[in-house]
Amino acid sequence: MRYVTVFILSLIFWLLLTFRLSVPNLIVGSVASLICSLIFTRYFITSVYKLVQPKRYFWFLVYLVVFTWECIKANFDVAYRVLHPAMPIKPGIVKVKTSLKSELARMLLANSITMTPGTISVDIIDDYLFVHWIYVRSDDPEVYTSIITGKFEKYIKNIIE
């Protein structure tokens, strides 16, 4: 079941990307999707029934809005630090605990952190994310955990887990 889902999703993605419904295109797309589904299904969500729960799509839309806003803020933040003559930076690598369990959710969280203002994820070891921060605003682990992961963790939990 999971293999079939990955196959169909990647075939749809291929067809939208090439945007042509000719027979050679379909054959190439099927072969590529087959290879993708064989290799990458083990990274896919554990139960495909999560894909038909509308609640998750609602949270995904909320997440997209929050994320786009953070992303735009991140760009102005970086532009400000770069163009400021004195360059107000105070970089550091901080350790942040995450409560997400599945691999896909952690991947999404790490990618979100990379696109938010001033942070970029370095590594994940057990339950801890290591985040490079361009301006360390606080020394208290609780405070910076809520600043870095707090915004996204609850949405990602609702979407994937």
């Binding site: 105070k90 970089p91 550091g92 690598i93 901080v94 350790k95 590594d123 290591f130």
Partner: peptide, 10 residues
């Protein structure tokens, strides 16, 4: 200017 490096110990 780096103020903190938690990754070093890990």
């Amino acid at each position: 200017r780096t103020v903190k490096d938690d990754y070093k110990d890990a």
